[in-house]
Write a protein that binds this DNA or RNA. Structure first.
Lengths: 133, 133
DNA sequence: TATCAAATTTAGAATTATTCTAAAAACCAT
DNA sequence: ATGGTTTTTAGAATAATTCTAAATTTGATA
């Protein structure tokens, strides 16, 4: 068994996700050491190119599971399509409107200060900064 | 003619939008001096309650026109529904995930610093900060 | 004020992204 | 190998939005 395959399996198990065949295959496409922002269609295309046989429903299921498990971050910049970000470290985004494409902004660069008081009983789930360009 | 009706007509004309009946009616619902975040369904409900006869397509057309003309700001926080914000001054948002509801954060409170260099030939279209709580 | 071409509005069809359903396949502890 | 549980899948269902083309409104002009 290849080393990266083993790593992928371990990554899934660590996140309480049963490492089934298609989950490992999709994880393999996403977690290759390079940060990426993918739409569902991107993943379907990637899978097709690698001759991974799967279904639209499974891609949705899998990406949603990965996002709930904290393996992916869902990024909402368009009302239509959903994007999933493999970069889990704190960072923000440029959104290239004409290309419908996201790019990371390293956190060190950007700083949000003066967060106001939260309403009673609330805690911050995320702070998302999107710069549309 | 009531004063506010005249104001609404003028507001539309100033933004190069022909002040037709339904545009004035929808503008009247939205620009009443109170900041609000509305979905398309909210507007349809508001219209129905005020006995304004219109269609779903017209509400979409009108809100899209208002947004392009700069009378409304489109806020994207959910992949499903679109929100339109009548508050045009620079500000950011709390998003109450469980209630699917937006609330303004006054700009004075929050500050984004250290914006990085933009890629060649790009200009900032908007800087959106969403705090999910 | 009546006329008319251009713009707008509308109902319903079409499109798109996503979720649901329930049957088939894969999984894994025994 | 067996069998109960979990996944996967194809296709149907749903939801938000856009498109289409016919009907209506608008406003400039006679």
């Amino acid at each position: 068994m290849k080393n990266e395959t083993h790593d992928i399996t371990h990554l899934l198990v660590k996140h309480d996700i049963r490492p089934t065949k298609i989950r490992r295959a999709i994880a393999g496409l996403l977690f290759d050491g390079h940060d990426k922002h993918v739409s569902v269609d991107d993943v379907i295309d990637l899978a097709r190119r690698q001759k991974i046989r799967t279904s639209v429903a499974s891609v949705y299921n899998t990406l949603n599971q990965f996002a709930s498990a904290g393996l992916l971050r869902r990024v909402t910049v368009e009302q239509g399509r959903a994007f999933f970000d493999t970069n889990l470290s704190a960072h923000h985004h440029f959104y290239f409107e004409d290309e419908e494409r996201l790019e990371d902004i390293p956190t060190e660069d950007i700083n949000v200060s003066g967060l106001p008081e939260l309403p009673q009983g609330r805690t911050i789930k995320s702070v998302d900064v999107t710069i549309r360009i």
